[in-house]
Design a protein around this nucleic acid. Structure first.
Lengths: 137, 137
DNA sequence: CTACTACTTTACGTTAACGTCAACTTAAAG
DNA sequence: CTTTAAGTTGACGTTAACGTAAAGTAGTAG
């Protein structure tokens, strides 16, 4: 039976397609040290950890963070708090990030409230208006 | 007594400064039809509605939306649902936006959970470690 | 072996969102 | 009146995040 590890390897095209990005994106993120794929010959191979890391990256992008911020978050995420000599720095950075995201949540909540109000008014208008039959020309 | 309206007018520099942006940003948003300031002579003047609109724009940016999306949202926000012939279109667009923001909220909540876990582990490590006194040099 | 496919690297292009700067115009101060 | 300050417009520069394409390399099929 083939080694389990073989079944979780992806080519660049496979990984890109499954995540809805391009191979160019993967190469670009590699130059930014966001991901570090291995090589078989001169071809990149990605494992499940690379894939998981990419998923975190894409979530960060959906939230609206620049790639440098995402890298910082991933480094926090991966850091071994038992060993880093700057645990206090880690705590501070994490607290800043939490604050930032909480503020973003509040902005979103405010915007959602407004959108729901617009939706309610517009729907009410649709319900109350008699259906107009337009004569075709 | 001077007209009330006079007191709510801003120059470009005044508005920019109060919002934490540059005059260049205001001019740029004008070319994108996000705002429409009036002119006194050849100088732009902004009223409280322009200011309020700018605040919505900046909130949209904080959430991570591109300016074109923000403009679309503002147009929804300003639209008079009683008159627009495409009320159903409005409803659809609003629903899509609500969906998008709700998904973004979920991404943020997931990220916050992870950050809080990191914070907890790191804080615990700090608490349990003996405080080290470094000799100064 | 050759031809084809699928990768690679390198490098320039594109888009979004302004920043920066030169040159000009207008309002206000002296 | 002149000088200064504070706007204006036009245009190029910068950064971030890739897209596109040319040229090269390696693996695979025939």
């Amino acid at each position: 039976m083939s080694a389990n590890i073989k079944e979780s390897l992806y080519t660049a095209t496979e990984l890109a397609t499954s995540l809805g990005v391009t191979s160019r994106t993967l190469r670009f993120y590699e130059t930014k040290h966001l991901i570090q794929p291995k090589r078989v010959g001169n071809r990149r191979v990605y494992n499940y950890k690379d894939r998981a890391r990419m998923q975190l990256i894409l979530r960060g992008k959906r939230i609206g963070f620049p790639l440098d911020d995402i890298k910082e978050f991933l480094d926090l995420y991966d850091s071994d708090a038992d060993r880093t000599p700057q645990i206090q720095l880690l705590v501070n950075k994490v607290e800043n990030r939490i604050k930032q995201l909480t503020e973003q949540q509040q902005d979103i909540e405010t915007t959602l409230d407004e959108l729901r109000e617009i939706h309610s008014i517009a729907s009410e208008t649709l319900k109350n208006k008699p259906k107009i039959r337009w004569s075709s020309t």
